[in-house]
Amino acid sequence: MVEAQVYVISITIAQWYFSKDELRPKRAIRSSLRNAFSHSSGTICFSGLIFSSVRVVRSMVDNAREEETSGIVNVILRCSVSALMSAIDFLNKFTINFAAITGEAYCKATRMTYELLKHNLLSSVFVEIVSTRILAGIILVLSAIYTILVCVILNAGIRLGDDAYFVAVMAWMLLIVILGYFVHVLDNVIDTVYVCYAIDQDRGEVSKQQVHDVYVHLPISRSHRPGFPVRAPLVV
């Protein structure tokens, strides 16, 4: 269901991104839901299975890195870890976004997403980590400010005493849940726009000038390679 949510958001945002300003997409969410739960349902389920498996493997790799071993065993482990992480690098969270935009099968979309970002941008890790950390920081700051205000208002106006701290903590938890949901959606939107921007870069086109004005400031890969043909996005 999480991957289905990402799929629907990706198609909806891609229809907005690649549409002309005078021709705004109609019934974008309805068409996205129809695509997600019809011919693309297998891709979504397979993506969820793969992504969960990748998380388990990454956890095992991180644990292996923390173990202290010496001699030839340490060298073999380090080489194995490096090779495994290189293979896992193909499986990033942008694959489902690309599959939703282009309609490609998951395995093919995995390779094409990796090549697309490698040819045109620095790394998928840049947006994947920076955007997530920034949004998480915003949640913490807003929730902390809100909690302090609630506590001050309760103590000054109602004078609940120690109960004010309990109410403030409950308000903080509720706000974390609400903001977490919206930030999760916003994070998926950022990922989709990032992939759309990469497709524009590969084609040498500008679909949304305001997006290019922002992403042009991101680090660009110095080693330019010729692009590869990408199937036309599933937008109207």
Rank of each mutant, 00 (worst) to 15 (best):
L117Y: 00
S52K: 09
V211F: 08
I176S: 08
N74T: 08
L218A: 06
T192W: 03
K20D: 15
V193M: 05
F18H: 01
R133V: 15
S52I: 12
A144F: 12
T102P: 01
A105M: 09
N63E: 13
A36R: 02
A168R: 01
T147K: 08
I153H: 08
A83L: 15
V6C: 04
Y114P: 02
S40M: 08
L23A: 14
S41C: 10
I148G: 03
Q201V: 13
A164C: 06
I76Y: 06
V61M: 12
G137I: 05
L149S: 12
T102K: 03
P229M: 10
S221N: 15
L84D: 01
E104D: 12
H224G: 09
G157K: 08
D89Q: 08
S52W: 09
Q209A: 13
V73S: 11
N155S: 11
T192P: 07
S10L: 03
V214H: 07
R30F: 12
K93N: 12
I190Y: 00
Q15D: 14
S40Q: 10
E66I: 07
I29K: 05
E22M: 11
V61I: 15
S41I: 15
P233K: 01
S38E: 06
N120Y: 02
V127T: 03
S53D: 08
A136F: 09
R30H: 12
E115A: 07
L186F: 09
S38V: 08
L116M: 02
I178D: 00
R55D: 10
G103A: 05
